[in-house]
Structures are given as C-alpha cells and as structure tokens.
C-alpha cells in the first residue's frame, strides 16, 4: 500500500517535471521565432488585436468597478482618521502596484488565455499543426510566436487601462459622490505616487504576467491530448495554472520590489 502510494507519487512527480521541461523547450522555441516575426509585423498586430483589443471591454468595465469599490472602502477607512484627502493616492497606488497588473492578468487568463489554449488545442486535434509541419512551416514559430508576443505586449497596455479607469472610478465615487476635495485627491496622488517605485514596478509585474499567462495558455494547447475531452481539460488547466502562477509570482515580485 505504502509502496504503491509512493510509486504513484513518484510517477506524478515525474510527469509534472517532464511537463515543466517540455514547457521550457517550447518557450525556447517560441522566443527563437522572434527574428522571423519582426519582418512580419502584421502577424503580431493581428494577435495584439486578438488578445488585447478584444479584451478591452472587460478590462475597462472591471477597472472602473474595482476603482469605485476602492473609492468607497478607502473613504470609509480614511475618513475615520480625517485623512480622506489621501483617497487619491490610496486608490492610485493600490491599482498601479497591485490590482491593475494582477486583476488584469487574471481576466486575460480567463478571457484570452482560455481562447488561445482552445484554439491551439483544436488546431492540433484537427491536424492543422501537422499540416503546417508538412508545408515546411514551423507551427511553433508561425502560430505560437506571434501569439506569445501579442500577449506579452498587450498585457501592460491592458493593465495601464485598468488602472487609469480604476482611478477615474475612485475619483467618481470619492469626489463625485462622497465629497472628497477634488484638488486634494489629484495633488496627493501626484505628489506621492513615485514613477520608478510604483509605475515602473507595476509595468514590470504586468510584463512578467503577460509572459506567464500566454506561455501557460500556449503550452497547454500545444501539449493537449488531441481530442475534444483533451482540449477541454487543457483549457481548464490553462486558466487554473495561470491564475495560481500569477498570484504566486505577485507575492514574490512584491516582496522583491517593495520589501526592503
């Protein structure tokens, strides 16, 4: 019994390690396709559209609502200390440092990552990837590389949009509804939000999340069992793994960036 359990544990450990190995080989292949992608910006633009532009609505709406909630909650807490003119900096810092990159990455994993996984998995199941191979076109470089860099570039732009709309949402609730002083809201934000410390670190986070979310999505699709059940399982795994990876990495990155 114990031996059996150990064997099973060992086997699933090995499977997981082999998967991680394949994922890294795939990533190397994807990034290796960059020189071929650069002369063909259309392929990249199409994917930025697919992953970025088509996610704009959900990102914008979510950003607005998250900002409004921040405005409300922040006001109740700050007001108790008579510090409600700090609402601006509180809303902006939370968004730019944490919520913008993280929530955007989670939403992109659900909206675009799952679609990428399903698309690649179905291309595999219907032998389209094999057909590309047979036409002497490397499917990794032709299909995966543009999607990867599309996600990589779209993520920080989406996060910036999320944060910007969030700030507007916070302003609307704080200044518009709860009567926080308009000038104080903006001037505190301007004075205390540091470009390098806050904005650049937020951008770095969302670049990392862009890599991780699209990498996981593409790998799960490319590695999927080529059946309908296999693709559906891969899609689920893609979202779950991406979400866990984003949250875990966020902790590590936050500790590295702000924890001195």
């Amino acid at each position: 019994m114990v031996i059996d359990a150990l064997v099973r544990l060992g086997r699933s450990g090995l499977t997981a390690l082999a998967g991680i190995g394949r994922a890294h080989v795939l990533l190397a292949g994807i990034v290796g396709g960059l020189p071929e992608l650069l002369p063909r910006p259309r392929l990249l633009l199409a994917q930025i559209y697919n992953i970025g532009v088509l996610s704009v609505l959900i990102i914008a709406v979510s950003g607005l609502f998250v900002g409004m909630v921040l405005g409300l909650q922040g006001y109740y807490v700050l007001n108790q200390f008579g510090a409600d003119e700090s609402l601006g900096i509180m809303v902006a810092a939370s968004l730019v440092r944490e919520l913008g990159p993280v929530v955007t990455a989670l939403l992109v994993a659900g909206r675009a990552g799952s679609a990428l996984t399903a698309e690649i998995g179905l291309m595999k199941a219907t032998e389209q990837l094999s057909a590309l191979e047979m036409m002497a076109v490397d499917p990794v470089r032709r299909v995966l590389t543009p999607r990867f860099f599309g996600g990589f570039l779209a993520m920080p732009l989406l996060a910036a949009m999320f944060s910007a709309l969030g700030v507007l949402g916070g302003w609307f609730v704080g200044v518009g509804l709860l009567g926080v002083d308009d000038g104080a809201f903006w001037s505190q934000m301007q004075a205390k939000l540091d470009f390098r410390e806050d904005v650049i670190n937020g951008v770095i986070k969302s670049l990392v999340f862009g890599v991780v979310v699209t990498w996981i999505a593409l790998f799960e699709g490319y590695d999927a069992t080529p059946t309908s059940a296999g693709v559906s399982r891969a899609t689920t795994r893609s979202v779950v793994h991406a979400a866990l990876a984003v949250l875990g990495l966020d902790f590590i990155l936050t500790a590295l960036m702000f924890g001195d």
């Binding site: 389209q128 047979m134 002497a136």
Partner: peptide, 27 residues
Amino acid sequence: LRTRMGMLFQSGALLGDLTVFENVAFP
C-alpha cells in the same frame, strides 16, 4: 525536403481561420 513533398491529410487539415483561397495561397 518537405517543400518538395505534398501531403493530403485524411481529414483535409485546412487552416480553419483562412478562406479556401488563402489556404491554397499559404505555402
């Protein structure tokens, strides 16, 4: 070598997001 080989897959395996014209134009 494969550019000198054509293969007709049992399932066809056309690229699903391209028209018939674009599929033939692809190679």
